[in-house]
Amino acid sequence: MGMIGIINIGLGNVDSVGRAIRHLGHDYVLCHEPRELEAVEKIIFPGVGSYGAAAKLLGETGFRDSLRIEVLDNRKPILGICLGMQLLADRGEEGGGGDGLGLIHGTVELHRGADCGVSIPHIGWNDVFDSGGVLYDGIPDGSAFYFVHSYEFIPASKLQYVGICDHGIDFTASIEDGHIFGTQFHPEKSQECGLSLLDNFIKYKRC
């Protein structure tokens, strides 16, 4: 199995993800610069914080262009976590707004649960249904994962696999489109189910 690269551009603490990877018996490198992506086989993109600021950083650091090359041209699998999943989209409206990576077409908007009488941010353990796909192999449908977020990913078209979570309304908890994966929740903080999901990504072999 090739090396896993965790993108570290100052979007929150990446160590929790690293600790989980190590706990699963794998090694990883932190990628601070785009060229470091060349040597890795798989990419994990964790992040918390504001979309606008993150979008700006993606441009300034050069990660936007290199990630598109590594994922689209070189077909390296990527897992975006929380803000990292949101940044797979074309655009987000938070924090002044900004362009994402455009790896999965869609937009990131304020969680619609706010209009349905539930509290936003959505924080805590919640069930994910109808997931299927590679990430959830061996994980029972309806398992709970740990969420902390205020915005949601709205895919532009139907994706191969989408995990659904109910918070006021049904929203996109995870996405899987070929070798591109994302989870709105934090698998590294979701106990056994989260660790299994990370392990599934690590063991995934592109067809």
Binding site: D15, A20, K189, S190, Q191
Partner: peptide, 8 residues
């Protein structure tokens, strides 16, 4: 503790 606990 954080190295062994994969929960909040």
């Amino acid at each position: 503790v954080a190295s062994e606990c994969f929960m909040p």
